[in-house]
Simulated assay, not measured.
Amino acid sequence: MSPDLHHLSGAYAVDALDERERTSFEQHLAGCPDCRAEVAELTAAAHALTALTESTPPPTLRDAVLAGIAQVRPLPPVDTGADGSLPSADAATAPGGLPADGGTRGGVVVPFRRRTTRWLAAVAAAAAVAVGGLVWSPWSDPSPYDQVVAAADARTVTSTHDGTSATVTWSRELGRSAISVSGLPSLPDDRTYQLWYGSADQKFTGAGLFDTDASGRATAVLDGDVRSATAVGVTVEPAGGSAQPTSAPIMLMTLT
């Protein structure tokens, strides 16, 4: 799989991929735990930012910010040479990593995941004091969907057919599973999509209902415990759902 797919995690988290890119990335996601964890982090960040509300911040916020500023040592400006070049990366440094001559040290390569974490923290801080100090919202806890996707033992299976794609992620440790679908048409008011857990004895247990948005996409966390399930299915049922499937599954994915 092309290494370029790793760079699509941010666009995937904010639903900015086209159908071909989404299908390719979801297939890659099935075998890449790093990308699954990164998607979960970025999705949680996007959800948190949408939860910002305009309100009066707590009285302690200003004092806390000012106290924090006093404890942060700003980096000195980059001292370029007469030709505009940056200082050598192997320049001598004093204890603590600062240049011995008081200038700036050479470039430091920060791993991508650390850059991501710091970027998200900066976004959170900026959002918390936006609009002249009138916006205040702490980070919300990860959604149930994000918890499943980010689980340490998460496994994923993807099914694609005629422009429709579904990805099921499940965690035996959590006992939960989640589904992300695209390319499903909207249903009339008297019909709904229903999720099912299938067992080894070919019995099906209802695991919740969902509807797609105008673009044919949806995400949902299945009801019930995934640990005894061997498959996840999707059927079209009457509004309100059915006790047992009344039609053949339009999707059926085996959990291995």
Rank of each mutant, 00 (worst) to 15 (best):
A130C: 13
A130S: 09
A130M: 02
V131M: 06
V131C: 09
V131P: 07
V131E: 14
L134R: 09
S137L: 10
P138Y: 02
W139Q: 03
S140L: 13
D141L: 05
D141N: 06
D141V: 06
D141R: 09
P142S: 07
S143Q: 05
S143I: 13
S143A: 05
Y145V: 00
D146T: 15
V148R: 01
V149I: 01
A150D: 14
A151S: 04
A152Y: 07
D153G: 00
D153H: 04
D153C: 05
D153S: 03
D153Y: 02
T156M: 04
T156Q: 05
V157P: 03
V157I: 07
T158W: 11
T158C: 03
S159R: 15
T160K: 12
H161V: 15
H161L: 00
G163M: 09
S165D: 10
V168W: 14
V168I: 07
V168K: 13
W170K: 01
W170E: 05
W170T: 05
S171F: 00
R172E: 01
R172M: 05
R172L: 13
L174I: 06
L174C: 10
G175M: 12
G175N: 07
R176W: 07
R176V: 10
S177A: 08
S180G: 12
V181G: 04
S182R: 05
G183T: 02
P185G: 04
P185E: 15
S186N: 07
L187T: 11
P188H: 02
D190F: 03
R191N: 04
R191H: 10
T192D: 12
Y193D: 10
W196F: 03
W196T: 10
Y197H: 15
G198T: 05
A200T: 03
Q202K: 01
Q202T: 15
F204K: 08
T205W: 04
T205Q: 08
G206L: 05
A207P: 06
A207W: 02
F210C: 04
F210V: 00
T212C: 12
D213A: 01
A214T: 15
A214Q: 10
S215E: 11
G216K: 07
G216Y: 02
A218E: 02
T219S: 01
A220I: 09
V221L: 12
D223M: 08
D225G: 03
D225A: 06
D225M: 08
R227N: 15
R227S: 07
S228C: 03
A229L: 10
A229I: 13
T230E: 07
T230K: 11
T230H: 14
T230L: 00
A231V: 01
E237I: 01
E237G: 11
E237Y: 06
P238C: 08
P238Q: 14
G240Y: 12
S242C: 12
